[in-house]
């Protein structure tokens, strides 16, 4: 069995790797590229801890083959901040104590960022449904939803400036 050569862009960097046909994008990110920020909570698309953005849409990287990434543009949690400046979603997660153990956090950060890119002013209900594919067992979601709505407000204010 020969490995597949893939050229792709991850967090704005051109990346090449070899992967086995059955390896998921998550396996590749974690085991081949040492991008361990994306987490595996279930391996079946039910928890969202491995959420990444592929060509502008969020997907579970455990449900995508590494081989499929050829020519795509991928953003992982490691690519959400700009240099040493946190994204407003990251900053608000910290301020609202929207994480306890922090394991689901990368997936929430990526999913929430994508939500606010698409919908700058989500209602609480819209935020809850958008984030329903991200399981959190620690927080009861309350502070996560507050952080996301607060980040939206900050981003709207920034955009208006």
């Amino acid at each position: 069995m020969s490995k597949i050569h893939v050229s792709t862009v991850i967090n704005d960097d051109p990346v090449e790797y070899l992967c086995e046909p059955q390896q998921s994008l998550l396996d590749v990110l974690r085991d081949e590229l040492n991008l361990t920020g994306s987490k595996e909570g279930c391996g079946s698309g039910d928890c969202g801890a491995c959420t990444v953005i592929v060509d502008g849409r969020i997907v579970c990287s455990c449900l995508m083959l590494g081989a499929e990434a050829e020519g795509r543009k991928i953003t992982t949690v490691e690519g959400i901040a700009t240099g040493d400046k946190l994204h407003p979603v990251q900053q608000k997660f910290l301020e609202h104590a929207a994480l306890q153990c922090g394991f689901c956090t990368p997936g929430f950060i990526v999913a929430a960022k994508a939500l606010l890119d698409e919908n700058p002013n989500p209602s609480e209900e819209e935020a809850r449904y958008w984030l329903a594919g991200n399981l959190c067992r620690c927080t009861g979601y309350d502070k996560i939803v507050r952080a996301v709505l607060d980040a939206a407000e900050v981003m709207r204010a920034e955009a208006a400036e």
Binding site: L86, Q90, E95, A97
Partner: peptide, 22 residues
Amino acid sequence: RPIRPDGVDKVTGRANFGADMT
């Protein structure tokens, strides 16, 4: 309600959980 000191690592994906060690 200060920001937790391990927080930045957890929102940026740098924190090392059980499976992250090599």
